[in-house]
C-alpha cells in the first residue's frame, strides 16, 4: 500500500521499505513546523545541525552574489531532504529557503544516525543523494546548453515526474506555488524572458497556468520539445 508519508513515498521510488523501516521513518516525520514563504531555513555560513525534510510547499537551494542577484540551484519539493548528511559539514556553503508556505520536519543528527543504521534506509538515502547530484548535473546542461524556451519546458517536465513520484500530480496537473522570478533565477534569465517563454509554451498549447497550478496539456510533446529524458531521476525501479 502506498504510504501517506511523502518521505516514504519518495524513498520507495528506489525500493520498497519493510514495515519496521517505514515505522521508524514515520516516527521521525514529526512534529511539523509551518514556515512562511521567503523564509530562510538555513543560511550560508550557518553550522548545520538538523536535517530538514519538506512535507508540503516548495523550497530552494540558492546563492546570492554581489548586487543581490540570486541563483537557484535546486527546487525542493514535498518528500525532499535538504541533504541528509549535511550535519557532517561545519558550515553551509549555500542557503536553503522556502519559496511558498511550507510544512517541514527537522530531524536531529542522532535520529539521522539511527536511521542510517538500517541498511534499506541507508541505501535509500544514498540513492536520494545521488539523484540530487544527477539533478544538479542535468540543471547545468539545461542552463548551459538549451534555449530558454526548452529550459523552462524541461524544468516543468522534471517537476511533473518528481511530483508524480510522490503522488502529487492529478490529470497531468500540479501545484506550482512559485513565482516567475523564482523560475527566472533558476534558469539564469530575466523574469521578462521567463514570462515570454511561459506565454510561448502556453500559445503552443503545451501548458496552461492558472492560480498557481500548472497543467501539462500534452506530456509527450512537452517532453520531446525540451529533450527531457527522466533517466537522471532514477525512478525506474
Amino acid at each position: 500500500m502506498t504510504s501517506s508519508n511523502l518521505m516514504i513515498r519518495k524513498l520507495e521510488g528506489f525500493h520498497s521499505l519493510a514495515s519496521d523501516d517505514q515505522a521508524l521513518l514515520e516516527r521521525y516525520s514529526r512534529p511539523l513546523h509551518d514556515l512562511p514563504p521567503k523564509h530562510d531555513i538555513i543560511r550560508e555560513g550557518d553550522a548545520p545541525r538538523d536535517v530538514v525534510l519538506i512535507l508540503s510547499g516548495f523550497a530552494c537551494r540558492y546563492k546570492l552574489i554581489e548586487g543581490g542577484k540570486r541563483q537557484i540551484m535546486a527546487f525542493l519539493v514535498p518528500g525532499d531532504f535538504c541533504d541528509f548528511q549535511v550535519f557532517i559539514l561545519k558550515r553551509m556553503d549555500h542557503n536553503i529557503g522556502t519559496l511558498s508556505r511550507c510544512n517541514v520536519v527537522r530531524i536531529k543528527r542522532e535520529a539521522v544516525l539511527e536511521l542510517t543504521e538500517r541498511p534499506a534506509i541507508a541505501r535509500a538515502f544514498w540513492w536520494a543523494s545521488l539523484v540530487d547530484s544527477a539533478t544538479l548535473r542535468e540543471w547545468l546542461v539545461n542552463v548551459g546548453q538549451r534555449a530558454v524556451e526548452e529550459r523552462i519546458a524541461h524544468l516543468l517536465c522534471e517537476l511533473l515526474v518528481r511530483l508524480e513520484a510522490v503522488g502529487l500530480v492529478k490529470s497531468n496537473a500540479y501545484s506550482l506555488p512559485i513565482s516567475q522570478n523564482d523560475i527566472a533565477d533558476a534558469l539564469g534569465v530575466t523574469v521578462i524572458h521567463a514570462n515570454r517563454m511561459l506565454m510561448a509554451l502556453r500559445d503552443q498549447n503545451l501548458i496552461e497556468l492558472k492560480a498557481r497550478e500548472l497543467i501539462v496539456k500534452d506530456v509527450g510533446r512537452l517532453k520531446s520539445f525540451s529533450g527531457f529524458d527522466p533517466n537522471y531521476l532514477h525512478l525506474d525501479r
Binding site: V148, Q180, T190, V191, I192, H193, N195, R196, M199
Partner: peptide
C-alpha cells in the same frame, strides 16, 4: 509579439536594464 501579461518590476530604471538584458538573451 505583444506582451499581454506584463511583469511587476520595482521602477523604470530596473525595467530598462532588464529589457536590455532580455534583448541580449532573446
Amino acid at each position: 509579439s505583444p506582451d499581454s501579461s506584463g511583469t511587476v518590476i520595482k521602477d523604470d530604471e530596473t525595467a530598462c536594464q532588464q529589457a536590455i538584458q532580455t534583448t541580449g538573451t532573446l
